[in-house]
Nucleic acid binder design. Sequence first.
DNA 1: CAGATCGTTTTT
DNA 2: CATGAAAAACGATCTG
Length: 387
Amino acid sequence: MQNINIFRVMEGRGVRINKEVVDQEIAYGEGRMNQLRRELNGYNPLSHKDLKTLLIDEMKLPILPDRLTPAGKPSFDKNAMKDYEAILENNPAYANGPWGSVASNILEYRGWHITLSLCYKKFSDLVGPDGRLRCDYWLHGTKTGRTSAHDPNLQQIPKDGNKIWNRNIKRAFEADEGYVLLQVDFSQGEMRLATRYAKQPNLTETFQWNRDMWGDMIAALNRPKAQCKTLTYAKMYGAQRNKLRLILGGDDPDQFITDWEAYHDRIVAFSNKVYEVAKKRGYVRYWTGRVRHLPDRRDARLAFNSLLQGGLAEIVKSAMIRLYNEVDNPECRMLLMVHDSVIFEIKREYLEQYITQIKQVMSRVEDEFETNVPFDVEEEMWGLDAA
DNA sequence: CAGATCGTTTTT
DNA sequence: CATGAAAAACGATCTG
């Protein structure tokens, strides 16, 4: 079976939508947006112009030098608004004014705008008469070889959130009667691939012994998990020294970076080699033979990330072929794919046995790709309230 | 007015 | 000159 046919089957199946939850959230969200707009004196939080008039001209807040848009204008995105919120809270001149909650109002308005227009309203418009929502996958939708999804883009539905505007998103999806929705992810797939390519001994051991990668890194580098994640992802994306310092903030970032690079010495050396080779050739070749041509061969920083992002996408697509051939059936249907995870609709009474089988088949990467680093997967139930 | 670009949000 | 990957999609605003 080829991927194109598998995706065609998945597009045909779609996923069931809970119309009550969707309608309820639309009504509530629209009400909140109207109220917030009134509290903001009619200023439109979606208009950069309005926000400049309100925040800079009227409220006399400063333009934040570290918070500029690519075009060099003051940014009012959520990071900037957090800074403004702190300024407002710490300054009595503002606290006693009429704009006490202006920052949180703007953030909530924009949060609802995104959730309603991209999720709930889209779901409502696009859901079929049978109550199922179908997106459109583009198998060639990205430069790296990942798949993209459209109408709606189900690859960007918010995670269950602490934020009120997307706290109920997952409740909008439901399984058929007697079934459950299960997501299965390749965990730390890109780091496993980097470890496999670079033959990084300590990480190879971490993965072979099925230890927690973050736990080992935290212990070795003596830094909090959030910092370890930030730096690790930034390195996988090819961030340069200045950018690393900026995103890590205070607390001796240079020492941290040095320690990280020592702990991942083989990966660092390998990424440098990928850079050199890609610069010479103008492209990078994945394990399947697929190539990504660089948009500008003088700048090969993209190469390492493409090798990981694209190479993992090839691993996931291979896994989907095995899953379709060996597992998929009316009791256990593949419905959706989100980059490094696959979402299934499974008959509840056989759930445990299918979890075992899916994990075994999905992680059997060595069928196509020789590796001594295991590619483990983790399962997660959708809709925990499903009794 | 149509189409392009900007700024913002969300995901892996 | 500066540089953090890949995307979708909305509304507001700019451009021809």
